[in-house]
Every structure is written in C-alpha cells, then in structure tokens.
C-alpha cells in the first residue's frame, strides 16, 4: 500500500458568477511510498499549490480521490478534518506561519496543545525535536527575535512534533538565503533518512535536487517525472535543469 495515492485529481475554479472555468488541475495521479522524499516542480500558476491544498485537505477537489494510508481524505467531514490534519500531516510554509504572540517553544507546542497532549509528554517530545533541529537555545525567544532560517527550523519542529505520517512543505526555501536553504535541505534529508515521508512543492531546482523523485507539473497536468536513483545531488540538479529547459522551450503538449 502506498502512503499517499493521488488518483485522477481534478480541480476547476469557476468565477463567482459562473463565468470562465479555469482548470487548475487535470487528471493528476501519482503515488508516494513511505519514507520517500518527493518534490513537485512547476512554474508559477502551474497548479502546484492547488495540488498541495488538496492533499492537505484544505480544499475539496472537483473530481478524483486522495488516499492517505488507504483512507480517502476527500470525503472526510468538516468536523473530523481538523483533527485528521493535526494527527497525520505536518506543514512547512514558505512564510513560516509562526504566531507572533507565542514564543518559539509555544509555537512548536501549538498542534500538540490543540490535540490535548499532557505537558510532560509535550516537553519530552520537544527536547528531542529541538535538539535535532538545533534550536534548543531559541526556545524561549519570540519569532521576531530570530532569523529566517531559525524560523523555518521552528516551523519544521512544529511539523515534526506530532509524528505525522506526511510532511507537506510549500516552497520551504522560498524565503531563505542560500546558506539557510542548504541547511534546511540537509535537515530535510536527515529527517527523511530517519524514515519521515516528505512532499515538497518548489520551483527551486536546488531544493528539488535533494528529493528522491521529482514530479513536473505544467498547466495542471503531470508533465514528466524523474527519479534520483543513485545520482548525486549535483547530477540530479543537472537532470532537473535539463527537464525544465525542455519544458520551457519545446515541451508543449496538447497543441
């Protein structure tokens, strides 16, 4: 069984007064195995974020299904959806989405508190997660007192602390400088090596080159996919670049 299975996913946006219908996603299908790290690439407006929103159950698809651990998440009711998301998914966003009113520690605690975890348990988990992400010294600080890289590591810690089945990262390096990006990607590889499944949406070639599988989306459809296999990050980087060039220059389908 796949950890995540996306089947013929479709999403059509219609403007409010029934005007033009825009196909954001058209028949997207792919699978993610447990312990995999997969990157979804595409240009702005290609439908990456829409896809991520469907997988995160933040939005309902027009057609098709998304299975997480065999469970169809597109049919989960409104009441359970939040706790489902809390228990199974971890999020890392481009703009961190940390709350200013919470200290770093409390930001990490947030999903656990919402799940009603006792303090001792939370604290135990925090210690190990913080150590892994090298933010132990920052715990009592506030988001506005730390750097972008540190903020993103906090967000990763928040995603990890619930032991989610899948981490969804939306342009995780998008707001980071190159050093912080490298550090974060190394971190992603580390936690992936520990068995954590990660799905990342990005248009950074470098970020994608760290993934084991890269999916290219263009105009709402899966255009191409490449596997890292035994390639090094550098070789993967080259492969991705070539593909992107192909897409940008000649790779036009359905025309």
């Amino acid at each position: 069984m796949y950890l995540l299975e996306v089947k013929n996913l479709k999403k059509v946006y219609t403007t409010r007064f029934g005007g033009n219908a825009v196909k954001a996603l058209n028949n997207v299908s792919f699978t993610v195995d447990e312990g995999e790290m997969i990157a979804i690439m595409g240009e702005s407006g290609s439908g990456k974020t829409t896809l991520l929103n469907m997988i995160a159950a933040l939005d309902k698809p027009t057609g098709g299904e998304v299975y997480l651990n065999g469970k169809n998440i597109t049919v989960i009711g409104d009441k359970e959806i939040s706790s489902f998301r809390r228990e199974n998914l971890g999020f890392v966003f481009q703009d961190f989405n940390l709350l200013d009113t919470f200290s770093i520690q409390d930001n990490i605690f947030l999903p656990l508190v919402l799940a009603g975890t006792p303090y001792e348990e939370m604290n135990k988990r925090l210690t190990s997660v913080a150590k892994r992400l090298r933010i132990t010294d920052l715990l009592s600080k506030y988001p506005y007192e730390v750097s972008g890289g540190e903020k993103q590591r906090t967000a990763v810690a928040r995603a990890l602390i619930t032991h989610p089945k899948l981490i969804l990262a939306d342009e995780p390096t998008g707001s980071l400088d190159s050093r912080s990006s490298d550090e974060l990607l190394k971190l992603f590889n580390e936690i992936n090596n520990d068995g954590q499944t990660i799905l990342m949406v990005t248009h950074s070639v470098k970020a994608a080159s760290h993934a084991k599988k890269v999916l290219f989306i263009k105009d709402g459809e899966v255009f191409h996919r490449i596997y890292k296999g035994d390639c090094t990050n550098e070789e993967m980087y080259q492969k991705i670049s070539d593909t992107l060039t192909l897409i940008a220059t000649g790779g036009v389908r359905n025309e």
Partner: peptide, 15 residues
C-alpha cells in the same frame, strides 16, 4: 491572519 495560521496547523472552525 493569526486565525488563518491556526487553522492551517490544525485548528477546526469550531475551535
């Protein structure tokens, strides 16, 4: 904005 973040992290509308 803050409530949007909280919903993304897993807070339900009811909460």
């Amino acid at each position: 904005e803050r409530y949007e973040i909280m919903q993304k992290v897993g807070m339900s509308r009811e909460e």
